[in-house]
């Protein structure tokens, strides 16, 4: 009766196993996508006028002369040890190019999440509490507008008002490891605010929907009919059951940050993974593109996995099996 049940452990183990399989499949997709190309990739990269030797050199470099299974295993093995191969563009190890940029991106996403999550969940709960009020309607239109705007539109609006007209922040996020925390934060602020705007809107709408969905339950009506005050209805009766949906909302939007980060980094010339990714796509620098994809996809899968495990843990039916 007490403590965790067998079912719970089995569910979590199953979910973790599924996450591992997904990661494996994703790595396979990323690898195969590059290798199952129609025609000869080396030829395509270099164009029609390339010499035989140049094509052969690229083939060797890509390992195209070895069997596919062996290439995949050595690529995956390397990636697990932090070795993503060498860039085509400047011949430097991919890991070296990515290292600092990955930390920068994490910093940016972290700042955005630190502002967005409490703000969005708080506003979402308020909108659910005062649903159909003026506040709720205005919030609905405002969040819809925010979601509908491309990230670069929000970014340029922020630049216009907070960097050009009122120079509070820098329009270019020139961060480097030797900056102290506050300067760094100040330079990260505009991209972080842009991401916040997009993600908060999403998260707030979903939090509101999750709670309203719950407020229609018979047990909430029962609590009201017992004379329980509105505040206690929300805190004591709705919130313990709303944990799972809210956790999912947060995870989904943190995952969404990953996509948003690419465009925003380009706008603000922020030295993160996203910017490197876009530049590498343009020059078709395959090892870097593969590494970036793997990093983004792994983060995405881990976030979803965490959310799933947390919501399994917050379910009373699973925590207290029959």
């Amino acid at each position: 009766m007490s403590g965790f049940g067998f079912d719970l452990l089995r569910l979590i183990a199953k979910r973790l196993g599924l996450g591992l399989i997904t990661l494996f499949v994703v790595s396979l997709i990323i690898f195969l996508a590059v290798n199952l190309l129609p025609g000869d990739f080396a030829q395509e990269i270099l164009g029609q006028g390339a010499t035989e030797e140049a094509v052969a050199a690229i083939r060797r470099e890509l390992g195209l002369d070895q069997p596919m299974v062996q290439r995949y295993l050595s690529w995956l093995g390397g990636a697990l040890q932090g070795d993503f191969g060498t860039s085509f563009g400047n011949k430097r190890p991919v890991a070296e190019l990515l290292g600092q940029r990955f930390l920068n991106t994490l910093f940016l996403a972290g700042v955005a999440a630190a502002i967005a999550v409490p703000l969005a969940v708080g506003l979402g709960v308020l909108a659910a509490l005062y649903r159909n009020s003026v506040f709720d309607r205005v919030a609905n239109v405002a969040t819809l507008t925010s979601i509908s705007s491309p990230e670069f539109f929000l970014a340029y609006i922020l630049i216009l008002f907070l960097a050009v007209v009122n120079p509070v922040f820098d329009s270019l996020s020139n961060v480097s490891p030797d900056l102290d925390f506050w300067t760094r934060l100040q330079r990260t602020m505009l991209p972080a605010l842009t991401l916040t705007l997009v993600v908060t809107a999403h998260m707030m709408r979903m939090t509101r929907a999750a709670i309203i969905n719950l407020l229609a339950s018979p047990y909430i009506e029962m609590a009201r009919l017992k004379g329980v005050s509105p505040a206690r209805v929300i805190v004591h009766h709705a919130l313990p059951n709303a944990l799972a949906p809210i956790i999912n909302v947060i995870a989904l939007n943190l995952a969404y940050l990953i996509t948003g980060v690419v465009v925003v980094e380009v706008v603000f010339v922020y030295p993160g993974v996203g910017q490197l990714f876009v530049d590498s796509v343009k020059i078709r620098d395959i090892p870097i593109v593969q590494a970036c994809c793997l990093i983004f996809a792994a983060t995405y899968i881990l976030l979803n996995l965490t959310a799933d495990v947390l919501s399994i843990l917050s379910n009373p039916r699973l925590r207290h099996p029959k």
Binding site: S217, P218, Y219, E221, M222, L225, K226, G227, P240, P316
Partner: peptide, 20 residues
């Protein structure tokens, strides 16, 4: 008054008890 002087018993007890 609700709960103290007037109480309610719903059709579906399974749905009307809070699962948490």
């Amino acid at each position: 008054i609700l709960g103290r002087r007037i109480a309610y018993v719903a059709q579906s007890a399974a749905a009307s008890f809070n699962p948490a």
